[in-house]
Amino acid sequence: MLYSTQYASPLGSLTLASDGKSLVGLWVEGQKYFGGTVTGDLSEKNDLPVLTEARQWLDAYFAGKKPAISELPLAPTGGEFRRRVWEILCEIPYGGYTTYGAIAKETAARMNKKSMSGQAVGGAVGHNPISIIIPCHRVVGANGSLTGYAGGISKKIQLLELEGIDTSNFFVPGKGTAL
């Protein structure tokens, strides 16, 4: 059984999902792949301890504090490759960012491979089922492109700016599949 609750954020309504012990999903309303890892129905349960903890974490985050990702029990659903990418996302510090290419290099190293496709990494980042907490918004293109945020580019910019990142050196691509 999976449980859910809603959270009113500066980005709009967020849906949080739990298996009862861990957080398994956090989606911005209308985001691409919304609920993509959920099989079955979500039962609303606002008083579930892990969902209460997640709402408190989000309160701190949106208040400009720097809550640690490790404060929450996370259980994102995905294959080994995606889980490796999501682990690397969790290592990007608050107020920092990295590129898809850098994550591809690190993923390849951790999986004992010669190289890894930046596009494959982009797919894993885009399918992150626990947005914001697993900080996929902290990934940009090597050329400064703000591409690839499933919650929408404007929300990605809001999150980066909330964390104190100067986004004036980044740009929104005019076209592409990851907008």
Results as ranks from 00 to 15, higher is better:
residue 94 Y to I: 06
residue 55 R to T: 08
residue 53 E to T: 09
residue 82 R to V: 13
residue 76 P to N: 02
residue 41 D to M: 13
residue 80 E to Q: 12
residue 54 A to P: 01
residue 92 I to Y: 01
residue 50 V to S: 05
residue 83 R to F: 10
residue 58 L to F: 03
residue 52 T to H: 13
residue 64 G to I: 02
residue 56 Q to H: 14
residue 75 A to C: 12
residue 57 W to A: 01
residue 73 P to D: 14
residue 73 P to H: 13
residue 98 T to R: 09
residue 99 T to P: 01
residue 74 L to Y: 02
residue 40 G to N: 09
residue 64 G to T: 00
residue 85 V to F: 08
residue 87 E to Y: 11
residue 91 E to I: 08
residue 47 D to N: 13
residue 92 I to G: 03
residue 74 L to V: 04
residue 91 E to H: 11
residue 100 Y to S: 06
residue 67 P to H: 10
residue 46 N to T: 15
residue 69 I to S: 03
residue 68 A to P: 03
residue 94 Y to F: 14
residue 77 T to G: 14
residue 98 T to D: 06
residue 81 F to T: 00
residue 52 T to K: 15
residue 40 G to Q: 04
residue 82 R to E: 15
residue 68 A to I: 05
residue 41 D to A: 15
residue 63 A to D: 00
residue 44 E to G: 06
residue 68 A to Q: 12
residue 93 P to E: 12
residue 38 V to H: 08
residue 83 R to Y: 10
residue 89 L to M: 04
residue 84 R to L: 15
residue 81 F to G: 01
residue 85 V to T: 05
residue 51 L to V: 08
residue 76 P to F: 04
residue 72 L to M: 08
residue 41 D to R: 14
residue 73 P to E: 14
residue 76 P to Q: 00
residue 94 Y to G: 07
residue 36 G to A: 10
residue 90 C to Q: 01
residue 93 P to A: 11
residue 81 F to C: 01
residue 48 L to N: 04
residue 73 P to Q: 12
residue 51 L to E: 10
residue 52 T to W: 13
residue 75 A to G: 11
residue 69 I to A: 05
residue 87 E to R: 14
residue 100 Y to C: 07
residue 39 T to E: 15
residue 35 G to N: 00
residue 80 E to G: 06
residue 40 G to H: 02
residue 87 E to D: 15
residue 94 Y to P: 06
residue 50 V to M: 08
residue 67 P to K: 02
residue 97 Y to N: 10
residue 89 L to E: 06
residue 61 Y to P: 08
residue 90 C to V: 04
residue 100 Y to F: 05
residue 100 Y to A: 08
residue 37 T to S: 02
residue 66 K to C: 02
residue 80 E to D: 12
residue 50 V to R: 07
residue 70 S to N: 08
residue 58 L to V: 01
residue 81 F to Q: 06
residue 61 Y to V: 04
residue 68 A to S: 07
residue 66 K to M: 05
residue 95 G to D: 08
residue 77 T to K: 15
residue 57 W to S: 05
residue 77 T to F: 13
residue 50 V to T: 08
residue 71 E to Q: 11
residue 75 A to Q: 13
residue 85 V to M: 10
residue 97 Y to L: 11
residue 79 G to I: 00
residue 98 T to M: 07
residue 39 T to A: 13
residue 63 A to S: 02
residue 46 N to L: 12
residue 98 T to I: 10
residue 52 T to I: 15
residue 61 Y to I: 02
residue 56 Q to Y: 14
residue 43 S to K: 12
residue 87 E to S: 15
residue 54 A to N: 05
residue 36 G to M: 06
residue 52 T to G: 09
residue 81 F to Y: 07
residue 45 K to Q: 11
residue 84 R to G: 14
residue 78 G to T: 00
residue 43 S to V: 13
residue 72 L to T: 01
residue 47 D to W: 12
residue 50 V to D: 06
residue 78 G to A: 01
residue 81 F to L: 09
residue 69 I to Y: 09
residue 39 T to N: 14
residue 53 E to K: 12
residue 50 V to G: 00
residue 55 R to L: 04
residue 55 R to K: 15
residue 65 K to G: 07
residue 95 G to F: 02
residue 72 L to N: 06
residue 35 G to R: 02
residue 66 K to T: 04
residue 76 P to A: 03
residue 80 E to V: 10
residue 57 W to R: 05
residue 42 L to W: 05
residue 57 W to N: 00
residue 46 N to S: 15
residue 71 E to Y: 05
residue 66 K to I: 06
residue 38 V to I: 14
residue 79 G to S: 00
residue 54 A to W: 10
residue 68 A to W: 08
